[in-house]
């Protein structure tokens, strides 16, 4: 379970102070699929970064699985991030010098799994995203949709409890976006909690719950009555 209470995030530069989040409170239950929408600059990425332990809040309380994150040091945060969180980025963020197998391997090595266990997990997630045949390809040899599927595989390989996605379909055409969305939905139905930032209202509507962030606050949080069924492509 993810619980934020009165989170505040202030960015200070020489000239200005930006209050990216203020009085931000939110609870996300185990197994939820939450979509996050809101105008540009409203604080969506900031929220996701704090939720994913990429940044720390200026103020407020954040409990991840009951662990008070603000009390953790940098390397403990790294470990929590590594074990509990999978990240999916708009720009895929695969490491260009590594082949797909080694890309998925990166978080598993930090986790300290032995090579047999890593291989098992990598092969499993590669199969899950349907790219087993291309394990030795470099990221640049894949289409955008394929790259994002590898990024999802990498996020899933550690079997995280939370999958955080920042506009995962933002760089994809609608067909590829639909594929990725389907993948996320099946991952969610297998039990992984997903929080997804998106600009696409159609995709947002497919989530069980949508929260809207305006000006650094949760302005609206509503549960969709019924998850719409995806039309067959």
């Amino acid at each position: 379970m993810l619980k934020m209470h009165n989170i505040r995030k202030v960015y200070r530069t020489d000239t200005i102070e930006t209050h990216a989040l203020r009085d931000f409170s939110l609870e996300v239950e185990e197994g939820e699929f939450v979509s996050v929408t809101g105008p540009s600059g409203s604080g969506k990425t900031t929220f996701l970064n704090i939720a994913g332990l990429l940044e720390t809040a200026t103020d407020g309380q954040y409990l991840l699985d009951g662990v008070d994150i603000s009390k953790l040091g940098d390397s403990d945060r790294s470990r929590q991030r590594n074990e509990k969180i999978g990240f999916i980025f708009q720009g895929f963020n695969l490491i260009p010098d590594l082949n797909l197998f080694d890309n998925i391997d990166v978080p598993l090595r930090y986790r300290g799994f032995n090579s047999k266990e890593r291989r098992r997990r990598i092969e499993h997630v590669l199969q899950l995203v349907g790219l087993s045949a291309r394990a030795k390809y470099l990221p640049a040899q894949l289409s955008g949709g394929q790259q994002q599927r590898i990024a999802i595989a990498r996020a899933l390989a550690g079997e995280p409890r939370f999958l955080l996605a920042d506009e995962p379909t933002g760089n994809l055409d609608s067909e590829m976006a639909a594929q990725v969305m389907e993948l996320l939905e099946s991952i969610n139905s297998a039990g992984t909690t997903i929080i997804m930032v998106t600009h696409d209202p159609e995709l947002a509507a497919r989530a069980r719950r949508n929260i809207q962030i305006v000006d650094g606050r949760v302005s609206d949080s509503k549960a969709a009555p019924v998850a719409p069924v995806a039309e067959p492509a």
Partner: peptide, 14 residues
């Protein structure tokens, strides 16, 4: 890439 590795769980020492 370093940011990505950190996001994927690398410690500073890593």
């Amino acid at each position: 890439q370093i940011g990505i590795r950190r996001a994927l769980g690398a410690t500073r020492a890593n």
